[in-house]
């Protein structure tokens, strides 16, 4: 099984963690992104995630490589769920193992921030009074990705 995947099935954090456990690691940092019910007072009924799956997996792998360049002893695994998710369902699990704890925190944070920049996954909010695809990509100039994003 790959260390990076997208699935419509419920995610089990243990499956992601198991991929980075190894004798060299003294720390495993796990990030779990869940479906939030209230955003600034507005109630979400459920979310719908959609992915450009082949590219999303590729970009998740790329994040893993970036992490290994920045933190050479780190190992990363990432899983993201798509389809309809209910409140508190797990949308994403990131596990990073490193020899020492400081690096695992930093690399884990890097992974989720980077996910929101380069991985083509979208979410649609469903409320009582409507629905909307939400994007919060940190894109500076619409339609013109930065050089780093293209490379």
């Amino acid at each position: 099984m790959s260390d990076y995947w997208i699935t419509e099935n419920p995610l089990n954090p243990r499956d992601v963690i198991d991929l980075v456990i190894r004798p060299e690691a003294g720390a495993i940092n796990t990030f779990i992104g869940t479906v939030r019910e209230f955003t600034e007072g507005k109630q979400t009924l459920f979310l719908e995630y959609q992915a450009y799956e082949s590219m999303a997996v590729k970009k998740m792998e790329e994040i893993g490589h970036e992490i290994e360049q920045q933190w050479p002893d780190a190992r990363t695994a990432i899983a993201h769920r798509t389809g309809r998710l209910e409140i508190s369902d797990i949308a994403v699990v990131i596990a990073v193992s490193t020899p020492h704890r400081a690096d695992s925190y930093e690399a884990s944070r890097y992974a989720i921030e980077r996910m929101k920049e380069i991985v083509p996954i979208w979410k649609k909010e469903h409320w009582h009074d409507g629905e909307k695809w939400i994007g919060d990509q940190k894109e500076k100039h619409p339609g013109v990705p930065s050089k780093e994003e293209v490379q």
């Binding site: 450009y52 994403v92 929101k116 380069i118 979410k123 894109e139």
Partner: peptide, 9 residues
């Protein structure tokens, strides 16, 4: 592929 702003996570 046209990629509208993404919001994974």
């Amino acid at each position: 592929a046209f990629i509208p702003p993404v919001s994974g996570g």
